[in-house]
Amino acid sequence: MVLDIDLVGTISTYLGLPPELVRAVLAPLIYPGLGVFTVIVLFLIWAERKIAAKVQLRVGPYYVSKRLHGALQMLADGIRVAFQEVIIPLEAEKPAYILAPILSFAALTVAFAVVPGGPGIYGFSSSMSLLIVYAAISVSPILIILMGWSSSNKFSYIGAGRETLVTIAGEVTLLASLLSVAMMYKSLDILEIVEIQRQTDIIGLVANPLAALLFFIAALLLTDRIPFDLVLGEQEIVQGPFTEYTGVLYALTLALDYGKLYVLMLLFTSLFLGGWAPFDSVILGVVAVLAKTILLLLLAVFLRSVYARMRIDQVASVFWGRLFPLALLSFIISALVAPLYG
């Protein structure tokens, strides 16, 4: 096809570098990594505010770039935050305070290297890539707890405690749904999972809708989306573990949650929506993956305007009492539908 462009091959022959190296640098830095992620985050925060405003019959961001309905608001805010002074509290544990957000975001970029963003677009392939993504995402709670501890602020302490609870409640459900998916496809390789879905023409959402639902809900919990925004409880604990952060470090903590959401939704696209399913060519495949991911992201931020917040005990009881048994049920469904995929 004309649209097929072998970008990695072209660059590697031009620079004289092995294609694996070019691939491993390009994927986390440009697509599906930081470059595209930045654009998507700027769009997503604007969309979140605009959607919430529309549902509440308000106008939302408007005055920065009126013709684009305020779409450049987040760019303006981002530039402001980037040049803001980074203030470190006197009582803070300085090294941990500075390093924790940087390290947690760096761990997230590992996930960018593994999640595929289209046919043949990935950092490196591995037979364990699903577990690598999960591991990269589950590093961040530890560093968030570290942020809360090192800030030495009462709101940060409470936020860090809540992060512990959220992690324990949410990651069990997430891991259970991931494992039931792996059981269904009999593979832990995301690329292979997408290929299996394309060959059999049955997407995971149809085969095991329960696992998809649980994955989505757990993703909402782990990224502090509104029905479960315990960690960043703005009403009670200013910004949770990130209360004391300013400037670039604050931007990193903010991007951390959106980054996790982005990775999880990319993963959702690959696992349940068949990745680049109807298309073969690179460009159309990338467009398909991005469209599906953005749709999921918009759904995730739309829920903010519909739901009220839940209390801590409600979240714990819902996740352990309702969703965890459902996760066990999704294992049974996986066992039943596994023959579909050969």
């Binding site: 529309k54 019959l57 308000r58 106008v59 829920l303 305007s305 519909v306």
Partner: peptide, 19 residues
């Protein structure tokens, strides 16, 4: 129901803000 009401409001209603 909650999600449909939200979507309906999002797509059909106009803001009440006085600029």
């Amino acid at each position: 129901d909650a999600i449909t009401i939200g979507l309906k409001t999002l797509l059909t209603r106009k803001p009440m803000t006085m600029m």
